[in-house]
Design a protein around this nucleic acid. Structure first.
Lengths: 141, 141
DNA sequence: ATGGATGCAAAATTTTTGCAGCTCC
DNA sequence: GGAGCTGCAAAAATTTTGCATCCAT
């Protein structure tokens, strides 16, 4: 489940010409280590655990900058807070377990294909998309 | 494109035992007439155009109550504001035109079916879902 | 009559911003 | 050195809430 063998966000940022400060180093490390979709407050908590004194405004500003460059993905689930995850190499969608809050990733090429097809029929070109399935564990009978 | 021949939100509310006040009458009327997905501020603006003096807190409280009863649908697009639409008889998904901000509804039974299938494979049961395609007009070559 | 709805203002939450100082390149 | 980043505090933006009053049922 964890990402392995990938270029670190740190390196990607360097490539994009972003300045690497002590704070960013920590924030990027936290993002790299996160397998979930934390909101800014949660990120700030994790960052502060490693290096206290980093201001939440810095986290906001960093996330905005990274999102702007497409290095992370911004989500807005129904809870109304911004959530982030490192940009996946391949797009995926999300199950959100309503009972546990857990977020599980999945991908369906067939659905992706159908989306393209429908968009084309409507004269649109897809820039990005988001599919969220709000679910609960299937009750065994 | 407009809804016709349907029970009014007003009647639905009555059936659900909600108290019908002057303010609600106006809010429901605005909702019924809205073919789009207004946020609370926009709703309040439209409501105030008909009957000034209705407080925005009342709009918020009414929307919360209606959403709670499932009479309207709450959306959270990427702009980070709560948006609403009268509950559709049949579920549909959304194109969001990034160039114009326009929201277009669509539905694909095939995608719906695939979603069910994938959820089942993961041991989940879908409670609700949301599919948003962020698009732009297809460039003619 | 009475429980629910409203207006108003205050509070809570989440995110952005102005500014002075600091630091990476 | 200078553009970019940070901390801090204040502001902005969105949503909720306490309370006294009012009104639909």
């Amino acid at each position: 489940m964890t990402k392995a063998n990938h270029e670190s966000l740190l390196d990607i940022c360097r490539r994009h010409g972003l300045r690497i400060t002590g704070q960013r180093r920590v924030i990027l490390e936290v993002l790299d280590a996160s397998g979930d979709h934390p909101d800014v407050e949660e990120l700030h908590r994790r960052v502060a655990a490693i290096e206290p004194g980093i201001n939440i405004a810095t986290v906001y500003r960093t996330m905005n900058k990274l999102a702007e460059k497409g290095l992370i993905e911004r989500h807005m689930f129904e809870d109304g807070r911004l959530r982030y995850e490192p940009a996946p190499e391949q797009h995926h969608d999300h199950f959100i377990n309503l009972e546990t809050g857990e977020v599980v990733e999945f991908r369906s090429d067939e659905i992706e294909r159908l989306q393209e097809e429908i968009a084309r029929k409507h004269g649109f070109e897809i820039v990005s998309h988001k599919l969220e399935l709000y679910v609960r564990a299937r009750k065994p009978r």
